[in-house]
């Protein structure tokens, strides 16, 4: 009898648990990992970025487009938002080439920094900000991207990055 009553409760808890644990780190990451941008250090670069991890565990940044060129650019009359990552899931077929899924580690309490370069991005007096994807678990995302690439277009492999990471946006600055 006890088994009959407890069974559905335990099953419900098991089903709920992954959602709670998935959502929690993402919220924490968004507040405990800080990204700031400033004018570039290297000549020819567009901006300088700095990512600080205030957690007591390492975090990982989706790295492939972090140094430029941009994965995607969102533009309005007064602002340019540069995405170094996909920011929303967009189901679709695999692209002609899917880049190696590189992650950059930021140790606990550590800061990493670098310059972003993309000659094709024109800011022209507008403010600019940068978005990155930051996640805690580096083990699952590569495998999920591979699975998505074989999903017969139900998911783009890029969706794995969106599911894995918290999307952080930097401060916006005026470059010119």
């Amino acid at each position: 009898m006890t088994r009959l009553v407890l069974g559905p409760i335990i099953l419900s808890l098991l089903l709920l648990t992954p959602r709670l644990t998935d959502a929690q780190p993402r919220k924490i990451l968004k507040t405990a990992v800080i990204m700031e941008i400033a004018r570039p250090i290297q000549e020819g670069a567009l901006l300088h970025w700095r990512i600080t991890n205030n957690l007591d565990v390492a975090v990982y940044v989706y790295d492939f487009y972090l140094w430029g060129p941009a994965y995607h650019i969102e533009q309005s009359a007064d602002k340019v938002t540069i995405d170094s990552t996909p920011v929303t899931e967009s189901p679709g077929c695999p692209p002609n080439r899917f880049p190696p899924l590189l992650l950059l580690i930021v140790g606990p309490g550590r800061t990493i920094e670098g310059d972003f370069t993309d000659a094709a991005v024109s800011v022209q007096g507008r403010s600019v900000s940068l978005r990155v994807a930051v996640g805690e678990n580096p083990y699952t995302v590569v495998e999920e991207a591979k699975q998505f690439a074989k999903s017969k277009c139900k998911h783009s492999p890029y969706d794995a990055i969106v599911r894995w990471g918290a999307i952080l946006e930097s401060n916006a600055i005026q470059l010119q």
């Binding site: 492939f64 430029g68 941009a70 002609n96 080439r97 880049p99």
Partner: peptide, 12 residues
């Protein structure tokens, strides 16, 4: 068809 050389081809 990608209008410009895709980011991946520029980087890698």
């Amino acid at each position: 068809l990608g209008r410009n050389v895709a980011g991946i081809d520029r980087v890698a």
